[in-house]
């Protein structure tokens, strides 16, 4: 498995799209952080970029990559090796290279130009989201045979989590605002990895304002380490569950 990770990683690190992605992120990070003498504002811009583009680009690139590598995957599978090892190795190499792109493009400029826990959290968020959405891409790959269909679904998933989900949630919150729905809302948030990532950042940037709301649950959830632990744990599930599902499906998949 390590062998496959190593060589696929060597391939991906020279991949033009990944290089381009890294450069674009770096340019964005440096320009956003450099223009303003106000680091918080730059941090927020980068948060928006991260929440919007990292999921979309990760899931699209990963889906396309998995479908394009299908013949190579078959060749690897014809060697004496367990099926799930090939799959997990390809996933690892892919997600590590995309995370590296993010860490180099956004993480390093951020940590150099803006000190503080927020920079660290944002870098962590970007990497976690990369893991989540490449994991989802893998699930798309094992679930569907057709590449075009897979790409369509990848875009739909990214769009759903970045925009539609929040729209529905806001509608829900508005229509049931007279009821004690805090707990339900926290529960619902767990079903969107992008929201979880955002909340993780919110807990550090806006804890003062969050403390201003009287909901006991919010205070308990958002005010202490519990909120962060909850968010990270849920994001981890968003990585692990699609991965396990993918392995299960892949073990029975006809190539």
């Amino acid at each position: 498995m390590k062998t496959i990770i190593k060589y696929v990683l060597l391939d991906l690190l020279r991949n033009r799209v990944i290089l381009f992605y890294t450069i674009i992120l770096a340019v964005l990070a440096v320009s956003v952080l450099g223009i303003d003498d106000n680091p918080t504002k730059g941090l927020l811009s980068l948060l928006n970029i991260t929440l919007l583009f990292v999921p979309l680009i990760t899931i699209l690139f990963s889906t396309i990559y998995f479908f394009n590598a299908i013949e190579f995957t078959e060749l690897l599978l014809s060697q004496p090796i367990k099926r799930n090892k090939v799959l997990l190795a390809e996933y690892s190499a892919l997600t590590v290279s995309l995370s590296t792109a993010y860490a180099v493009g956004i993480g390093i400029p951020l940590l150099l130009l803006v000190s503080g826990i927020e920079s660290f959290i944002l870098t962590l968020i970007g990497i976690l989201l990369t893991f989540v959405f490449s994991s989802l891409a893998l699930l798309i790959f094992v679930k569907f045979r057709d590449k075009t269909k897979g790409i369509g679904i990848a875009i739909a998933i990214a769009l759903f989590f970045t925009l539609l989900f929040d729209g529905f949630l806001l509608a829900f919150i508005y229509s049931f605002s007279d009821y004690p729905i805090d707990q339900a809302v926290v529960g619902i948030i767990a079903f969107n990895p992008i929201d979880l990532a955002r909340v993780l950042m919110l807990l550090h940037l806006d804890v003062a304002v969050l403390m201003g709301y009287s909901g006991a649950l919010f205070k308990k959830f958002l005010g202490s380490a519990t909120g962060s632990i909850f968010s990270i744990a849920c994001i981890m599930l968003w990585i692990i569950v699609p991965l396990l599902l993918s392995v299960r499906i892949f073990n029975r998949k006809d190539l």
Binding site: Y7, V8, L10, D11, L12, R14, N15, N68, A69, I70, E71, F72, E74, L75, S78, Q79, P80, I81
Partner: peptide, 17 residues
């Protein structure tokens, strides 16, 4: 599978390998 040598119909490899 260590007994087998397989040559696929389409040889498609990672671009930068």
């Amino acid at each position: 599978r260590s007994l087998i040598g397989y040559m696929p119909q389409i040889g498609h490899y990672p671009d930068n390998m």
